[in-house]
Design a protein around this nucleic acid. Structure first.
Length: 271
DNA sequence: ACCCAGGAAATTC
DNA sequence: GAATTTCATGGG
């Protein structure tokens, strides 16, 4: 059982799965990654330009193609972005195998609510505990991300085991507003950007930055440009003459190159 | 003991 | 309205 995608360029699994956009893949000692996406398990690895999804089902081929964004020409995107600014070209060359995943919108929403005033390692731990406690077990010890309906039914005390602190009430409010239709995540996919952002900000605990992350990572709004502490430092130090709008329709991809490059080069910001 | 972490809400000025 | 403080938790 498994799926193979042949002749895949511009994809590096470690760069893509460990660049801060997702929190649920675990790297194995052989360099492959195991994860559960949309309730489906896969162990993924690259062999040359072939992408192997061991354990995945052929009937899910389209889902996985979509998840890894295999229909977008990242070579072309990189050429366009690299022409904008030499430092952006350098950031893209540093991790040329980054792609923006198509994550489940609700998972992105909850994950980035958890991300606020937090660090990536602990975010991953909280998300793991959330899945273990409230997600469906797909195979031994591996759980799906919980549904909005399930999380909406919980009390603050129920969430105590995930140890997310003050974010517990944000998680429940988000789940309730998604479950009861107050916020329709799928409808945000093609709404004007500012309107989509405003919809998400109806949720307690969702501000501009979390909303931008949900739109970019969960709804594939590549025009989004989340500005976290790292990106604000990077913009001030590396792109003082540019604004987010200057990065165009693929700003979100530029953001990911810059975010990863900055996080891997903290010495750039020692002042 | 102190500081920070892919922020946002609550409070104060 | 804009600036500051608080909010849990864990690691350095």
């Amino acid at each position: 059982m498994g799926i193979i995608f042949e002749n895949i360029t511009d994809l590096d699994l470690r760069e893509t799965l460990d660049c801060g956009q997702c929190f649920r893949w675990s790297e194995q000692s052989d360099g492959s990654f195991r994860g559960i996406i949309r309730g489906r398990f896969a162990q993924v690895r690259m062999d040359g330009n072939d992408l192997f999804l061991d354990g995945a089902e052929e009937s899910d081929r389209m889902m996985w193609r979509d998840y890894f964004d295999l229909d977008l020409d990242y070579g072309k995107v990189k050429r366009e972005l690299s022409a904008l600014h030499p430092v952006l070209a350098q950031a893209a060359r540093f991790a040329p195998g980054i792609r923006i995943l198509n994550q489940e919108p609700f998972e992105a929403l909850i994950s980035f609510i958890i991300s606020q005033n937090n660090n990536i390692k602990r975010i991953a731990g909280i998300v793991d505990r959330l899945c273990e406690n409230f997600g469906q077990e797909i195979k031994a010890g591996r759980f799906a991300f919980p549904t909005a309906e399930r999380l909406a039914s919980l009390s603050l005390d129920d969430l105590a085991p995930i140890r997310a602190g003050f974010r517990h009430r944000y998680i429940i409010d988000a789940a309730q507003k998604v479950a009861d239709g107050t916020v329709d995540l799928e409808s945000l996919r093609y709404l004007p950007y500012d309107e989509a952002r405003a919809e998400l900000m109806k949720i307690t605990g969702v501000g501009v930055k979390v909303a931008d992350c949900v739109l970019l990572y969960g709804l594939h709004r590549l025009d989004g440009f989340p500005l976290d502490v790292w990106m604000k430092r990077a913009m001030a130090a590396l792109f003082p003459d540019l604004t987010p709008k200057d990065f165009g329709q693929y700003a979100g991809i530029a953001q990911q190159y810059i975010f990863h490059y900055s996080r891997m080069h903290p010495e750039l910001f020692d002042n």
